[in-house]
Computed example of a mutant assay.
Amino acid sequence: MAAKRNDVAELPGLDVPGTAEPKLGPTGRPLREFPVPAPLNGHGPARIIALCNQKGGVGKTTTTINLGASLAQYGRRVLAIDFDPQGALSAGLGINTHDLPTIYDLLLGSEKDTLSTIVETSTPGLDIIPANIDLSAAEVHLVNEVAREMILARVLRRVSDRYDVILIDCQPSLGLLTVNALTAAHGVLIPLECEFFALRGVALLIETIDKVRDRLNPAITLDGILPTMFDPRTLHSREVLERVVETFGDRVLESVIGRTVKFPDASVAGTPITTFAPEHAAAESYRRVARELVARGAVA
């Protein structure tokens, strides 16, 4: 009988007494551990990732801040681009944009030197090009420019060799600024709130990415969909996450960001949650996202 039990145990997918069941993560897939990334021998050229979703309040800025900080902790040089006129990324990293040159000045050409707009944050290895409300006028000024979709790509090309990753925090729309970000990017990360109305717009966003790939940027890829604001206590949250995985499969990251008051607390403090509450589960969740993106090859 012992020999028969051993034979059965070697067959995959059978529930045999004494064999361990794989632990499942929130996405319903086996929970894997991603290794700590190996140190880099040098820096650059950067891989540019646009964090994009036309719906507001899904965690784009929170993800840009904390993913950038996590990658910096793993030895990557990161440049964050505040590409939203609300300037939430700049505020969330404690940057006062008053009297500072911003991404708006670079887009319009009133500031030629990209390096002069880069500001160091309190997190070593994480820099930012800030933005403020002036950026809201950019689309009006750029509409008649030649190759207007390529302007951000030209701006970032000047500093790409100094960084390993450039993260672009896009505004919640699919206008000219977002098209600029998608044209400049090598990949797109879609933060997706685990809520029904957030799910509805993803197909339109992916259609926009496909159009940009066809017409402007053939190399752009979808690096992943990151579920955010997940609350395992609610059936709605669990059902939305299940539907996202059913629809998009492996394009959905295994890492999931839970809902917690620590994120707004960290934003008020003007610092990443990895610094504000480094031992909190939310901080570890973004470190896990960083490790998964490295494991997927989206980040060096």
Rank of each mutant, 00 (worst) to 15 (best):
Y163M: 14
Y163A: 14
Y163C: 15
D164G: 13
D164H: 11
D164F: 13
D164P: 06
V165E: 12
I166M: 15
L167C: 11
I168M: 14
I168E: 10
I168W: 11
D169N: 13
D169M: 12
C170H: 14
C170R: 09
Q171P: 07
Q171I: 12
S173T: 14
L174K: 06
L174I: 14
L177W: 06
L177I: 07
T178E: 05
T178N: 04
V179A: 10
V179T: 15
N180R: 11
N180C: 03
N180V: 03
A181E: 03
L182H: 04
L182S: 02
L182D: 01
T183G: 05
A184S: 13
A184M: 13
A185R: 01
H186G: 07
H186T: 08
H186S: 04
G187I: 04
G187R: 12
G187A: 15
V188P: 11
V188Q: 14
L189T: 08
I190M: 08
I190Y: 02
I190F: 05
E193T: 14
E193P: 10
C194Y: 06
F196Q: 07
F196I: 12
F197M: 07
F197N: 06
A198I: 05
A198S: 15
A198W: 04
A198M: 04
L199P: 00
R200M: 01
R200C: 00
G201D: 08
G201M: 04
V202C: 05
A203F: 01
L204C: 02
L204V: 09
L204N: 03
L204Y: 05
L204A: 09
L205Y: 09
I206A: 03
I206M: 07
E207F: 02
E207P: 02
E207S: 11
T208L: 07
T208N: 04
I209S: 02
K211Q: 09
V212N: 03
V212T: 04
R213P: 07
D214V: 12
D214T: 14
D214L: 09
D214Y: 06
D214A: 15
R215G: 05
R215L: 09
L216I: 02
L216P: 02
P218I: 05
A219L: 00
A219R: 05
A219Q: 05
I220P: 03
I220W: 06
T221W: 08
D223C: 00
D223A: 00
G224T: 02
G224D: 00
G224I: 02
G224N: 00
G224M: 01
I225R: 04
L226Q: 00
P227Q: 01
P227W: 08
P227R: 06
P227N: 02
T228D: 05
T228L: 06
T228G: 07
T228P: 04
M229G: 05
M229W: 10
F230D: 06
F230I: 09
